[in-house]
Amino acid sequence: MKTLASLGLFLLVLLFTGCTSKVQITLLPEDNGKTGVIAIADNKGEKHTIDKAYEALDISQKGEIASKQETQESVHTKYAEVLNALPSKPQSYLFFFSFDSATLDTKQFGELKTIAQGINNTGVVEVICIGHSDSAGDKEYNKTLSLRRAKAVAEKLTTYGVPKALIHVRYYGDADPLEPTTNNKPNAKNRRVEIILK
């Protein structure tokens, strides 16, 4: 009988704790120390917002919301598994070209070789090569030129051992300049290929 009673109490406690908090959302600071904003409306339609590092909102099953302050230690202990599994931001590299040229120089070959080795050693799952041109000359010609640039980079990466299946080539002509210019302006910064590693 005694055991039954304690079992009843145990169940009651379980039910009770089950009701207190069903969802917790916690804000973390970014690498640069900045923190974003998260908002939730509770069951009465009242909006709750958090915007400070390690601030958290608890949402009960009934939709009641309470804020609380976690610490760096508590968050990194409690959530170590997911925090360690979070992918790092895709990296980006730029390769610049001479006027009306899609030819890479020897120094750039060396840099591409280093990037290719990095790709093969660090579990990169996608390589995107995006070709760009400046706005000097014919738009259609520039599109083709930007494609030739992207292909030149992609082919060099393949030569250095990056599997073709990983590489995706895109080209935007003069449509996405790094430095916006008036039409028909040669611009060294816009004659480029961006490599994005995911």
Binding site: V23, T26, P29, E30
Partner: peptide, 8 residues
């Protein structure tokens, strides 16, 4: 920008 969500 950076957050954790837990559903118990």
């Amino acid at each position: 920008t950076y957050f954790v969500t837990e559903v118990k």
